[in-house]
Amino acid sequence: MTNPSVPPAALSPAVLEFMNEARRALGPLPEPADAFAFGDSPRMADELLALVLAGVKTATCSWPAERSCEEGDLSVVLDDRGVPAALIRTAERRERPFLEVDAAFAHDEGEGDRTLAWWRDAHRRFFGRLTDLPRPFSDDETVLCERFELVYGRA
Rank of each mutant, 00 (worst) to 15 (best):
P4F: 12
G128F: 00
A65P: 08
D34Q: 11
A106P: 15
Y152H: 09
E100V: 02
F38Q: 05
T131K: 10
F36W: 03
G82K: 01
H123I: 01
R23D: 09
R96I: 10
C69K: 03
P4M: 07
V56A: 12
P28T: 05
E100R: 13
R124L: 05
T60L: 07
V52W: 11
D73N: 14
L87E: 00
E100Q: 14
L130N: 02
T60S: 12
D108W: 04
S41G: 09
V77N: 00
E21K: 05
E109N: 11
L74R: 02
D140H: 14
T90D: 00
L78A: 08
G128K: 03
L144A: 10
F137K: 05
R125P: 00
A104D: 15
P30M: 08
R81E: 12
M1D: 12
G39C: 09
G72E: 03
D132Y: 01
L49K: 11
R135N: 10
P7H: 08
L99M: 15
G112Q: 13
A54I: 10
L78R: 02
C69M: 10
D40H: 11
C145A: 10
R23S: 06
A10Y: 01
G112H: 10
T2Y: 02
S12V: 08
P28K: 13
A86Y: 02
P8M: 04
S41C: 04
M44V: 13
L16H: 11
W63P: 01
L133C: 02
L53V: 13
D73T: 07
G27H: 10
A106Q: 13
G39H: 05
L150T: 15
P134N: 11
V52S: 06
F126C: 01
A65Y: 04
R124Y: 07
A14V: 07
A9R: 14
G112A: 13
P30G: 09
D102N: 15
W63F: 09
E21H: 03
F36A: 04
S68M: 08
L48V: 14
T2N: 10
V143R: 04
N20M: 06
M19W: 00
C61R: 05
L150Q: 06
L29N: 07
L49D: 12
T58R: 15
F98D: 03
A50V: 06
F105E: 07
D139Y: 07
W119G: 02
W118Q: 08
A10Q: 15
K57L: 10
D139H: 12
L16G: 07
S75N: 11
A86C: 00
D108S: 14
D46H: 13
F18V: 06
S68D: 06
S62H: 02
K57H: 07
D113A: 13
E100L: 09
F148S: 12
T60H: 05
G128N: 02
F98Q: 04
G112S: 12
V6Q: 11
D132P: 00
S138P: 07
T142E: 09
A50F: 06
S12W: 04
A54H: 03
A103W: 05
R67P: 03
L133T: 05
V143A: 09
G153V: 07
R43T: 15
D73Q: 09
A50K: 15
L78S: 03
E31Q: 10
